[in-house]
Design a protein around this nucleic acid. Structure first.
Lengths: 190, 190
DNA sequence: GTCTATATAAGGATAGAC
DNA sequence: GTCTATCCTTATATAGAC
């Protein structure tokens, strides 16, 4: 792996573990096994490197979500698969956590990938709910954008609960709770 | 307000805005209008001051939640009132956001109030769901702990979505989505 | 109790040698 | 491209005067 690649990957890890504010160039360099010269040769500085890292992480999250949401099954099953997908729950969401980072939110460039990814996710799920309504699986009374927001919020909030309690159980409980409520609106149970 | 009080209040504000890692003693002192001597006279250091601030914030959040959850109405109405309670959505949850702070999570003392508060909240709501089941308002098939986790997660995740999109609308959408799912399990609609 | 030094380390970046 | 040296600022804390 090239030095530039190692810098990006190390930054991705540290942003996930410690956030932007909590990540120093020094820590990145140590993890990447690179010197300062390399970092400032390949990137303009911390924000520039972080941008590359955030963009990649956002893309990855999108691809992972699409892999499940675009898979086989009824709309309900695809949403359930997304919610139940295997996760490193205690590490939190590498994208969602950035919303709590003041320096990320204050920088339009750093913030854009976060915003776009979470937005895309909600729209993607809302579209699946619409599919379900059209096929008759989901009750027509459901507001797809609202259900989608509840789904994504349950995941993002689940990370918070799990990290607070130090156990993935709270995440799983939230997911099961939401699915139990949602399944009542799903008439295609074959 | 005493100097000690001003220090705690300033710390509370900064922890909310920037988290623990992003808050420096210097910034606290400036906001409190105090000198370094005062801070190190009243508190052992940054972690000690932060602990006082976090404890107070946690107590306040609990009192606010109890004010709504312990209010009048059916179980469904009380949970709905909690979800719809007025919030400064874009600021996020002053307790929940600390779960993304590595230095808070690494310190058992700082972490305890966060853990306890979110735990209490889930249990409190689970108890209300149980009430609803006993009274016949909620379907007996609901798992109260799971529904409670979904409720709290929707709130915590709603903050994430709202901050990402820069608008409280996403929070409100998630809340409405969850309530629309939950209301179908509520037979006391008088 | 509060203030002003003072101290050590870390954050973040530049300069220039190799 | 990468390294080391150097720079200025901030983070966090201590010491001691008032």
């Amino acid at each position: 792996m090239s030095t530039s690649e190692r810098l990006i990957e190390s930054t991705r890890e540290l942003l996930w573990e410690r956030g932007y504010v909590g990540t120093s160039p020094k820590a990145i360099l140590e993890r990447a096994g690179a010197g300062q010269g390399s970092m400032y040769h390949h990137f303009k500085g911390k924000p520039d490197l972080a941008l590359a890292a955030i963009r990649r992480t956002a893309e990855e999250m999108r691809a992972t979500a699409e892999g499940v949401l675009g898979g086989p099954g009824t709309p309900y099953e695809r949403i359930a698969a997304y919610l139940r997908r295997e996760r490193d729950v205690l590490r939190g969401c590498p994208v969602g956590r950035l919303t709590m980072d003041p320096d990320v939110m204050a920088d339009a460039a750093l913030r854009a990938p976060v915003d776009e990814t979470l937005d895309w996710l909600r729209e993607r799920i809302a579209g699946i709910v619409e599919e379900g309504k059209a096929q008759g699986g989901f009750a027509a009374s459901l507001e797809s954008e609202e259900v989608a927001a509840a789904v994504v919020a349950t995941v993002q909030g689940g990370y918070v609960l799990a990290r607070a309690s130090g156990s993935p159980a709270a995440f799983d409980a939230g997911v099961r709770g939401l699915l139990s409520l949602l399944s009542a609106h799903n008439t295609r149970t074959e």
